[in-house]
Amino acid sequence: MADRSVDHLLIGGGIAAATCAQTLREEGATGSILLVARELDPPYHRPPITKGYLGGTETKEEGLIDLPEDVEVLTRTSVMALDLATKTVTLSNKETVAYGTALLATGAMVRRLQIDGVHLDGIHYLRAHGNADSLIEDAEAVTDVVCVGGSYIGCESAATLTTLGKQVTVVLLEEEPMERAFGLQVGAWVRGVLAGHGIQVVSDVEVERFEGEGDRVQRVVLAGGRSIDAELVVAGVGVTPDVMLARKSGLEIGERGGVRADAQLRAHGADGLYVAGDIAEYDSPVHGGAIVRVEHEEHAAAQGRTVARNMLGAAVDHTEVPYFFSDLADWASFEYVGPALAWDEEVLEGDMAEGEFTVWYVADGKVAAMLSAGGHGDIDRGKELIATGGAPPTNN
């Protein structure tokens, strides 16, 4: 017998769970809602961690997500066990809770480097407010910073730290920053933006080890022997879906590392259980039924909305086209809809040199994704073409 029961249980302290709670109330849900978060803080927006919060222009309070007053939030609390048969969970405070419907949105964990010297002081990972707080304090007395990784975390952190007066080098495995998601053409543009503000980009190379004097990092040593001075390191080498609870409960884990779900975001083989956010590996109608897993806050919020409606009986597929955005300080910004799982052509409109352009990613003559920089182009039109399988406007 459970200690108590709730109508809607939300497991996770990120935007997927928070948006689900908001949408439940907006859609007329009157039942009890319990949000359980292992985080120290109530749900908040994560993008500012590498931007405004890290740069000191945004407070922690400004990033908090408003929740309905009658939503119960348990922070610093983990779900230790999930029983799919009885629809109950056991919390870290020993309480057992039965649920009618539940959302599993446990997010992701940062991928940590496994090389010599990772134990040295001054090596940071960014995922939560606490990580940013430690980095901000540590950065006050240093000048030379190395950001390892050429995706969102590495590039955005490099830009923000440069605005704080640091001398930053970005080291990446790929030929160009953000190449994996957006291709070489956009990657070269990102490199140019960074380099234009004094950031050195070292590409096509692996970090071999960190070296230090005493307990503190002092150098990043690359494969081939090159050494870069580093009084502080920010490692942004990706995340892995946090499926520990899901795996323990017997849920199906997919090839992309997430929890398998159908087009309505219902977890396979689990009555009343939905998944959203970084762990959701679902059958995407937008991508022709392909199995997709998307790591970005904006899409996690969209999934939270779909889950809320389905918890209330809507039985709708998740047809929102995933949306992404990135800001490199106040130097450049771009929006992206997709993602393109693969493409065979890139159609450029606008002027890359001016930072105002659109790139259409095309697969078999159909728009698979669209990137808009500097406000160029129509993102809503991009979403429409992706959803309908249309050709890029320049081909019409």
Rank of each mutant, 00 (worst) to 15 (best):
L103A: 07
T90V: 11
V110K: 09
I123F: 00
M80T: 09
G55K: 08
T96P: 01
T101K: 05
L113M: 15
K60R: 13
E61M: 12
V89N: 00
L64S: 05
T88V: 07
S78E: 07
L54Q: 03
V79Q: 01
E95D: 15
H129R: 03
D133Q: 09
P68E: 11
M109R: 13
T77P: 04
Q114K: 15
G63D: 08
L113W: 05
N131T: 13
I136H: 00
L82D: 01
A132K: 00
K94N: 14
V118Y: 02
T88P: 02
D70N: 12
G52W: 12
T59M: 12
A98G: 15
A108F: 07
Y99V: 06
I115K: 09
E58K: 12
K94W: 13
L91Y: 06
Y99A: 07
T88W: 12
R127I: 05
H129V: 05
V79I: 08
A102Y: 03
I123P: 03
L135M: 10
V73D: 04
L54F: 11
G56T: 04
L104A: 03
D133E: 12
V110W: 06
L103D: 01
D66F: 06
D121P: 09
G52F: 13
V73G: 03
A108I: 07
H124E: 03
L64E: 06
L103E: 03
M109Q: 12
V97M: 00
G63T: 09
A132V: 14
N93V: 13
G56E: 04
L82S: 03
T57M: 07
D121Y: 01
G122I: 02
K94R: 14
T75Y: 00
T90R: 11
N131E: 10
R111T: 11
V118N: 08
L126E: 01
V71E: 00
G130I: 13
V73H: 10
V97A: 10
I115N: 06
L84H: 08
Y53T: 03
L104E: 02
R127G: 04
L64H: 03
V110Q: 12
Y53H: 04
V118I: 14
N93W: 06
T75S: 10
T88R: 05
V110G: 03
R76S: 15
D133L: 02
L82R: 04
R127D: 05
Q114D: 14
T96D: 13
G56K: 05
N131Q: 10
G122N: 02
E61R: 13
D70T: 09
M80Y: 12
Y99D: 02
K51E: 04
K51F: 10
L104V: 08
S134Y: 05
H124F: 15
M80G: 01
M80K: 08
Y99R: 02
D83R: 07
M109G: 11
T101C: 10
L82Q: 02
T106I: 07
R111D: 05
H119P: 01
T96Y: 11
